[in-house]
Simulated assay, not measured.
Amino acid sequence: MGTPTFQAPRRAARPWLRVFVTGLVLWVLTVLVILLTQNPNLIPTLVLLGSFLVPVTFVVWAFERRDTGELTPTLVFSTFLTGGVLGVLAASLLETYLLHPSPWLFVGVGLIEEAVKLCALAVLTRHLATKTMRDGMILGAAVGFGFAAFESAGYAFTALFTENGLSLMQVVQTELLRGLLAPVGHGLWTGILGGVLFRASTRHHFLITYRLIVAYVGVSLLHALWDSMHSIALVVTLLLTGSPAQYRLLETGWMPRPTDEQVRLFTFLSWAGLAVISVIGIAWLVGLWHSTRRPYNPPPGWRIPTATPPH
């Protein structure tokens, strides 16, 4: 009799895609119904669907690539929800009382937000008996995407209120933009930190290592550059194309009217800067992911055959 082969149970094809398509259809239908009925009671539905669609989709996609059976749907969901809320609350408190307007404001934001997400991840996953780097990246991404979802909901809700009253288009534009950028933001940065944290762990404790400190500083700087790219692009545009008249207006506290060339250059620099930051973060994440092998988990009841001793 030949050696039996193990066949993994078949999974539903691309559940993340079903989640995304279903959520997108519901979001579009919500926009259409609000336009037709002008019912403001549907605004919270629109905000929640648009803010959570992309983060939830990426968490489902990442969950399919888990290393161990300890990453249950319940654990990932609680990490996404609880970690996201704790991160947003802690960041809001610390930024309110510790940060003030200065050229280093965005550096402080990056350091605070990455620290609170890392702490939330460590607290919520401290009980895990097996901590692999890939599982740490998945759980870190779950915390980051939870943070991004709640933060985006806040931005979308704020965008609703304008000088001319409630603006549905402002909400839609905000959710579309933040949805497009969500995969290369909080989830990416905290995914990197989660992998490094779990790599430095023991069975019962997380360790603060040199690699973890370097990773924390690195993702915080990427975060700060991301948040400040608008200001950086504006300064570079003025340095390259600014006229003496524009400089004089700036010295007196007035914002000069940009030329068409300056608008195009500013737009290019803003998006190019975000693209470079995204590529650096993605390359870092992919490098970490491929720097470790998946642990081998044999199927239940399967044993490694041993040599038969000679009679």
Rank of each mutant, 00 (worst) to 15 (best):
L176E: 06
A91Q: 08
S278V: 03
Q173C: 08
R10S: 15
L36D: 04
A275F: 01
G242M: 04
H230R: 05
L29I: 11
T68G: 02
R248L: 13
V214K: 15
G83H: 04
N164P: 02
T125R: 00
A233V: 06
A182S: 15
P40D: 05
C119P: 00
P40Q: 06
V171R: 12
L29E: 01
V279H: 06
A13F: 05
H204R: 15
L234T: 05
L168H: 11
W289H: 13
F145G: 02
L193G: 09
K117I: 01
L240R: 04
T45Q: 05
R293Y: 14
L89F: 10
E251W: 07
S201Q: 13
W271M: 05
V263N: 08
W254R: 09
R126W: 14
T57W: 01
H230C: 08
A224N: 06
A159T: 06
T306A: 12
V286K: 11
P101L: 05
H223A: 01
L75H: 02
I112T: 02
L81S: 09
F157S: 10
R211C: 00
L94Y: 10
V214T: 15
V286R: 13
L26G: 05
R248V: 14
L35N: 11
V123L: 09
M229P: 09
W189Q: 12
F157M: 12
L181T: 15
W27S: 07
W302Q: 09
R65H: 07
W289C: 07
V184D: 11
E251F: 09
G287D: 15
L265D: 02
S167M: 07
G146N: 07
L197Q: 14
D135E: 05
G2Y: 06
D227N: 14
W254P: 00
G83D: 10
G179T: 14
L32T: 09
S291Q: 02
R18Y: 08
S167E: 01
E151C: 00
W104C: 04
R199A: 14
I304P: 13
H311D: 01
L24A: 15
L274Y: 06
E261D: 03
S51T: 07
N297M: 05
T241E: 10
L24K: 12
T130F: 08
F268A: 13
G110T: 04
R11E: 10
K131P: 02
G165L: 10
M255I: 12
G287W: 12
G146I: 03
G146W: 03
V184K: 03
S152P: 10
V28S: 05
A245K: 11
Y97M: 08
Y97G: 03
G242L: 12
A159C: 06
L53P: 07
F206G: 10
Q170P: 01
P9V: 07
F145Y: 14
D227A: 07
E151G: 00
V109G: 01
L93E: 01
V33Y: 05
A122S: 01
G154A: 06
F266W: 08
P298V: 04
V33H: 02
E151S: 05
P300R: 09
I208P: 13
